[in-house]
Nucleic acid binder design. Structure first.
Ligand code: FES
Ligand code: FES
Lengths: 163, 163
DNA sequence: TATAATTAGGACCGATTAAGTCCTCTTTCA
DNA sequence: TGAAAGAGGACTTAATCGGTCCTAATTATA
């Protein structure tokens, strides 16, 4: 886990497609354009519409278009539209859902970590995502690098060079 | 999704417990100490041992202890020990596993985003996690805040105040 | 007005995966 | 030798995801 649902992935692909073409597009059109399973694309688009990220038009010549400029849509919003609030652990958001909350020394910290990840994703806009090799995203990633020299466990170096 | 597996959550709780007590602890002991299901705790500990994060001792009076100082164990390592490499999307790591790679405008960017999230988690050590309300984690979270004023979509403000 | 195109909404099922449980073997200490 | 403990893995159940399909509502146009 710690993986986006496939449908969410589809969602980002569809959204980037929409961000690039500025005319309204039908679900069929978008699915083939992104080579996604048609029904899956339909489902995703319905969810995106319900969340207000795309504007739908019914009937003949209907279709979908972005509801606002791509710069005003964040990756967080796409994710949350398709799979609900970002919550790395069960207790990250609703504090009273976690069974082991009493004895858990990590709860408040997971809260913070969750927020950090969310803020990171919040800063990536659909406009950034739509540009392959986006410089803004690269710059963002650079901001997350360790501040200065940090003790790096040996095996993590091996891991990093593999990746 | 975008949620840690429950067992991973257990893993962090167990690790924080281990980080606090400096003597070797048996699985039974740890499970009751953190009020986790015993068998689940056993499974988690076995995985942590295989990954080299804890050192196990068999036989009577055996048990588990951290394999290195808590400052040298990162949250990333715990996660990866229990649920494999962090890969937000299927294509984040193994480039040739993703079916829609051809038509995907988002691939290289997901790569970057994935790395950013991983680096963030890399910077949180078990020692940080073990201190409730850790100042270091809070500081880290602050580093991820948007650099300066940023246009915030109205509905995200509503979301933020709810959360 | 009839028809075709198109989204809305939801039901359904098969596949995958997670979570929990259990069993057997090996190691170590008393 | 027996009890305590971990190693390794099989198995079952529950949850969730991905994919498919059906029906209704809406709109343009022939
Ligand atoms: S994991 Fe939920 S309170 Fe700690
Ligand atoms: S989601 Fe895999 S290549 Fe884009």
């Amino acid at each position: 886990m710690l993986r986006l649902a496939k449908l969410t992935d589809y969602g980002t692909v569809i959204m980037t497609t929409l961000a690039q073409s500025k005319t309204r597009r039908s679900a069929t059109d978008l699915a083939s354009s992104a080579s996604l399973p048609l029904d899956a694309a339909r489902k995703v688009l319905k969810d995106l519409a319900r969340a207000g990220l795309v504007q739908s038009e019914r009937g003949a010549h209907g279709g979908y278009a972005l509801a606002r400029p791509a710069t005003d849509i964040s990756v967080t919003q796409i994710i949350e539209a398709l799979e609900g609030p970002i919550a790395l652990t069960e207790c990250s958001i609703h504090d009273h859902r976690c069974e082991i909350e009493q004895s858990c020394g990590a709860r408040s910290n997971w809260h913070l970590i969750n927020r950090a990840v969310r803020m990171a994703l919040d800063q990536v806009s659909l406009a950034d995502l739509a540009v392959p090799g986006s410089g803004r995203i690269a710059a963002l990633a650079r901001r997350f690098a360790p501040p200065h020299a940090v003790s790096i466990p040996a095996d993590s170096i091996q891991r990093m060079t593999q990746a």
